[in-house]
Structure formats: structure tokens, C-alpha cells
Design a protein around this nucleic acid. Structure first.
Lengths: 189, 189
DNA sequence: ACCTGAACACCGTTCAAGT
DNA sequence: ACCTGAACACCGTTCAAGT
């Protein structure tokens, strides 16, 4: 049988990553300091440097974990293929702005501006999602080119709403989301 | 007669702000360090601290200057009232994504997350722009509520495109912009 | 294997001294 | 009035020593 995890005074890599996500979501990228992490987790600097090379590789670890999380998440989006296109799009948009995601999503995109590793991971994740959304528009009946453009615009609007929402609750974003979908599904000749 | 500005080994507040904008646009918020600014401008730390209290107030000065710049810019947007709604919207969107603006716009929004002063200024600027865009949709014939919602979505999509565009040239963003406008002006009952 | 705490380096900030 | 450069404080990083 596998060993049970003890209540643990001992810390794992994952504990540190978790603490990082908390800080990132609550206070943004500039708050990600070794000392802050130590306070959050109740350990000293040396412990951090046992688990991680330095701040840069710690950030890289955060990005990779986040990316893996996202990939799983978005793969499950693609598994919505069974749904009719309209419901599929609706489900995608709801997931995109889920409250567990948007704080970190924003922090990650902020990072991506200066960190090449983060940038590559964000780009890759975006490509996956864009493809899925475009496919849905395509299945709905738009030409591939038009579907692609509508997907980009939908995606952009989603990102923009994330940024504009500030700390607003999810409920306040659902109405715009659905209205956006209606407009995007319109067929102006 | 007024004194001419000398070729100047002497530095002005504005020189430091200019250096800051350059750094912000090129390397993002984390690159805004005193030493980097000094190198950029060719002076030593003490000079910086003659003109500014500390980094925080320097950032505040950057934000205020930027905000004044934006306000002027957006007031001129409202002066487009003479144009028919559709052209007015098109002109607004073009200005919104002008290459001189988007890098700083992004940096400012990044700041706004952790700096209350920046947040307030961004909020205020957004309110002005949103009102102008909503008015245009209203003049086009949509109900006030619908106009408001379309304005928010247009705005969100604009912000999103800024973020997604990366370092792409403006030309690549014009097509999506115009297509977005077409979709937003559609009238799905 | 994992953690502590002292030590060091780097960069934000201060300040006495120069022009 | 504006700037220099030395000095100090803070936080990222290292490392010898503990369990």
C-alpha cells in the first residue's frame, strides 16, 4: 500500500507552488517574493532554496504546472464535441471565465510579456483553445475563414472581459458572455 | 522673451518620465529600476532622487502624465460627434489600438492591479471612453441598454486584441477591428 | 532528505559634498 | 538648483551546520 501523507511539518514542492498561486492571485506578480512565500508557508529562506534553484526556476515551475492544469482543462473542452455547436460555445465561454482561473490567467499573461517560457506556454494554450472555438463556429455553419475570425474576436472579448472585470463576481460576467455569443452568431451579409 | 531650453546636460522631470516610458514599453514593469533609468538617461542615482521622492511617487508621476495624455486623446474622440455613428466608431477603434498607445496601455493596466492611483486613473479613462462608444451605438439606433452592452463588448474585444496582438504590427489588427464592428452593428432580434 | 540561520550581494534610498 | 558618489537597508541567494 502507498504511504499516507503525514500532517507534515515537512514541505513539498507542491506546497510552495500552492503558496505562490495564492500570492499571485491575491497580490499580483510583484508580491512574489521569497520572504512573502516563507511567511505564507511558515518556513525560512533556506527551505525554499532546497526545493528550487532560484526565483526564476520557481516561476518556471509555476508556469509549467499552470500550463499542465490548463491543458487538461482545455482538452476536456474539446471533448464537448458531442454537444451542438451553440451549447458547446456557451460551455467553453463559461469555463474560460471561471473564477478559479481568471486571476491566474491574468497573472500568467502578465508574466508572458517578460518570461519566454511563460510566453511559449501561453501561446500554446491559446492555440489549442482558439482551434476548438473556431471548430465550433465552423460546425455552426460559418466558413472556415469566418469561423477563425469570429473565434479570434470571441477570444479577444473573453480576455478583455477578464481584464475589465476586476474583482467582480462571476455572475456579473455571465450576461455579457451570453450576449456576446448572440452577437457573434449573427450572420450579417 | 522666454529662455530657450539648452542642449542641456541638466535633466528635467520630463526627461525621467520619458526614459520610464521607454523602459516600460520595451521591457515591462519589472524593468523599471532606478539603475536602469540612470543608465538610459546617463546620470546617477542621486539625480533621480532630486527630481522624485522615491520609486512609488515616480510611478505615480508616470501614471498621472499618462492619464492626462489619454484624457486629451479621448476628449478629441468625443469631438468626433459630428461624424455619422458608424464612422465615429471606426475612428474610435483605430485610435484605441494605435501603436503609440498599446504598449503603455498594457503596462498601465498591469500596474493598475496593484497600484490604487493607477487603478483609479485607468478606471476614470475607461469610463470616459465607454460612454463615448455607448453614445455612438445609441446614435446608431440601439436602445440605451443594448448600446451600453455592445459598448462593453466592443471595449473588451479591443482590450483583448491589444493583449493578443503581442508585438504584431498595427496593420494586422485593422481587419479584425473592422470585422468586429460589422458584427457589433448586426441586429439579431 | 529537509530545514535553519548567519553571511553576502544587489539595488532602493539617503545625504553630505560639489558645481 | 541640480548633480555626484559613498553609505546604508532590504531582499535574493549561498552555505555550513543541524535533525
Amino acid at each position: 500500500m502507498t504511504a499516507q501523507k503525514p500532517p507534515s511539518t515537512r514541505l513539498s514542492v507542491n506546497d510552495w507552488l500552492q503558496a505562490g498561486y495564492t500570492l499571485l492571485a491575491e497580490q499580483g506578480g510583484r508580491a512574489l517574493k521569497v520572504e512573502s512565500l516563507c511567511q505564507q508557508i511558515g518556513a525560512t529562506r533556506g527551505s525554499f532554496y532546497w526545493h528550487f534553484e532560484d526565483m526564476d526556476s520557481y516561476r518556471a515551475a509555476l508556469v509549467e504546472t499552470w500550463n499542465a492544469f490548463l491543458a487538461r482543462d482545455r482538452q476536456s473542452l474539446e471533448s464537448l464535441d458531442a454537444l451542438p455547436p451553440r451549447e458547446r460555445l456557451s460551455a467553453m465561454m463559461t469555463t474560460l471565465v471561471s473564477p478559479q482561473h481568471w486571476m491566474l490567467e491574468r497573472a500568467m499573461r502578465e508574466w508572458a510579456r517578460t518570461d519566454p517560457i511563460a510566453a511559449e506556454n501561453v501561446r500554446q494554450a491559446d492555440r489549442l483553445l482558439l482551434r476548438a472555438v473556431a471548430k465550433a463556429y465552423c460546425d455552426y455553419g460559418f466558413s472556415p475563414e469566418d469561423a477563425r475570425l469570429r473565434a479570434e474576436l470571441t477570444f479577444a472579448a473573453g480576455i478583455g472581459l477578464l481584464h475589465l472585470a476586476g474583482s467582480a463576481a462571476q455572475a456579473q460576467r455571465v450576461a455579457p458572455q451570453q450576449r456576446l455569443l448572440e452577437l457573434m452568431l449573427a450572420d450579417p451579409t
